[in-house]
Amino acid sequence: MSLLKISDLSVRIGGTTVVEEVGLELAPGERLALIGESGSGKSLTALAVMGLLPDGAEATGSVRLGGEQLLGLGDRELSRLRGERMAMVFQEPMSALNPLMRIGRQLAEPLRLHRGLNRRQAAAAAVELAAQVGLPDPELLVRSWPHQLSGGQRQRVGLAMALATRPALLIADEPTTALDVTVQADMLRLLDELVQQHGTALLFISHDLAVVARLCPRVAVLKDGRLVEEGATKTVVKTPRHPYTQRLVAAARATGWDTPEVAR
């Protein structure tokens, strides 16, 4: 039984189709990477699942979470599901943070609402979450405002917020772009651990093939809103079939960091 089943999903905005007949499936605890060119529709696919498409966007097709049809659900139902069953790490961390709320409260709020912790427990859990994602001086940091954090610190707060509710489905949209590779490695390890521990299904959006290869056994490739290739990550990286994927792998090798003379 799949946890998430997307079929024939199309998204139209202002007369243009930006996502076209996409189908994807995720079993509980499974991990799937979604990669593709900038503007190919990765974020909108994710937002369609979360019920967070921008005004004026229209989704057709079917998105089922544990059998329940999400397309067409009301705002209240969706927002309940977002707290209890699914969560998303947004591509631009600032868009997920309320600039007028201290970090600690933003971390604590969902814990009170959806995991039934009282105020004090939630505040303590917020500090713990901040420490878990490697933020320095967590007791002080939770008292900061979002603008006082570095780019990578904000991104880690976003990750902590999404992990806090232990969702059945986690969608992470480019969750490590603002992190240096050592912190990135820590965050991937943490993600790996927690997803495994809680049996969370992960849809991982990234443009970094090397990161994808480390985390997700399966990968799907979007191009111009359409799914052009899907398969085992190993196979796709080794023998990409679609010309776009071939270019992607070649470019990753060319601009990447695996020329032997410098790698040592």
Binding site: G36, S38, Q91, T177, A178, H207, L248, A251, A252, T255
Partner: peptide
């Protein structure tokens, strides 16, 4: 540039480079 290419996939990044 402060992380000016962080959100770009390799093919677009190659173009900007």
């Amino acid at each position: 540039g402060d992380e000016p290419l962080s959100a770009l996939d390799v093919s677009v990044r190659a173009r900007i480079l």
